[in-house]
């Protein structure tokens, strides 16, 4: 699946995550995660894993994802990634 434009979903509010996606001209999946230092240290890898799993599940290949996390649980991350990608198709 190819995304054709930039889009975003979610919010920069407590327990949520703001996901911004855009086509990656260089190819592949590029992920940039922005969160509080302590959260990034403790949960950064898990957040990244959830985002990557959702992207792969949706069959998206060339994508840049920028994520601004405010303490979102896995289910919120999955929902916001899916919404952003569906809006970008």
């Amino acid at each position: 699946m190819k995304i054709t434009k930039a889009a975003q979903a979610g919010a920069s509010e407590s327990s949520d995550i703001l996901i911004m996606v855009m086509p990656n001209e260089e190819g592949g999946i590029k992920l940039e995660l922005d969160s509080k230092g302590v959260i990034l240290k403790q949960f950064g890898k898990q957040i990244e894993k959830v985002i990557r799993e959702k992207i792969e599940e949706m069959g998206v290949q060339d994508i840049v994802v920028k994520a601004k996390d405010k303490g979102a649980l896995d289910y919120t991350i999955r929902a916001r990634v899916q919404a952003a990608i569906e809006r970008a198709i």
Binding site: A9, Y75, T76, A79, R80, A83, E86, R87
Partner: peptide, 15 residues
């Protein structure tokens, strides 16, 4: 509407 629908679906599976 689209985003909320997905969030509720995931919440029902996860929480």
């Amino acid at each position: 509407k689209d985003s909320a629908r997905l969030l509720v679906k995931e919440a029902l599976r996860f929480l």
